[in-house]
Design a protein around this nucleic acid. Sequence first.
DNA 1: GTATGTGAACCACTTCACAGCA
DNA 2: TGCTGTGAAGTGGTTCACATAC
Lengths: 212, 212
Amino acid sequence: MLPDIPEVVVERLPVYARALPQLASHGREVVSSQDLGEQLGVTPAQIRKDLSYFGRFGKQGRGYNIRRLVEELRQILGLEREWTVVLIGVGHLGKAILHYGGFAPQGFHVIAAFDNDPETIGQEIAGLCVQDVGELPPTLAGRTVEIGIVAVPAAQAQGIIDLLVSCGVQAILNYAPIAAHVPAGVHVRHIDPVLALQSMTFYVKDSDQPVR
Amino acid sequence: MLPDIPEVVVERLPVYARALPQLASHGREVVSSQDLGEQLGVTPAQIRKDLSYFGRFGKQGRGYNIRRLVEELRQILGLEREWTVVLIGVGHLGKAILHYGGFAPQGFHVIAAFDNDPETIGQEIAGLCVQDVGELPPTLAGRTVEIGIVAVPAAQAQGIIDLLVSCGVQAILNYAPIAAHVPAGVHVRHIDPVLALQSMTFYVKDSDQPVR
DNA sequence: GTATGTGAACCACTTCACAGCA
DNA sequence: TGCTGTGAAGTGGTTCACATAC
């Protein structure tokens, strides 16, 4: 139906969807690509082009109705739905993810957590009882789980990802420091603060300011 | 000195630097762009092109000496240095960041943590006493701090980023869900798991597998 | 007058393909 | 023979600029 949309475009849509309600304060109902672009550090042309892949949501001479555009974007992205998530790896990082309050309000519900450490299995964390990773396949067989969050050590990550894929999980948020291999049709995003720091140091290393 | 390097290239270098030692196991000393590419899901041509921006590190007919290449990459990226980091925002997320053991081994040392909540100020977390954010400027005046990690609520994030920039911080790792505005010469990377999930749902939403 | 939507022009990154060297 | 290093070709995404619509 929709002709091939560049992935970078899809990745910008949630940014737009999130920024728009902020612009709605002060009783404003309409926003121009100019306004949104300034808010986000993006060119107005890019915003218009991105949106044009999906339809014609604006009015010439006026701009975009904020509420309407947010709803369109959420529809396009599938954010009106609720999503079911499992977490694998309940170490320090996994515990922090379970306690993180940012997923559920956006419709991402962590319904089970798994680990392979006998000490960790059975613990209750954020209202969830940690299960043995061996129980993952039977647990997922019953219900539809679209998303897996991987927070295991690097050495185990590819194996866990393979397991998730074999259980029908279609999207993986990978916190492990490896380049994941997945079959076509499975989607991966990588969260890696160390890599982020290590690419910034390239730009900072030369320009060391003298101590004043 | 080095002619303009695309930012995407710089972002891939740490990935190469991290993957190489893994290939060194089994007593191997040399690796080809082919091997590394397969490991990382990148074309061999891209690896060779990326490296060629910085020098000629390989030997025709053989490949790259792993140890040598890792050292070159670490030198290029400034990873041989130690880096000084401050954290602002010691809520759930900030605490998790302080407990995270992945920064220090890579040379990123969090030397101070700040918050504006009287309850949090004074707490000792991971060996660090949380300071009032008002103490940030005097604390940074004395020493060189290159990197700031921002883990405050969205509403306060831009203000904190401005403050960091005014204190001479040149690189910011931003966990807050906003598009940060910084002057030229300051570098920002954004960590946002919710955005990552929200762009994957676009691809998953239609292809919902039937429950078997 | 004002801001969208969009083909065309432009730019940047990726891939190709082969000369050059071990 | 094998693999690097690199100009050249190709691809994909961004920006321009203007016709169009309110």
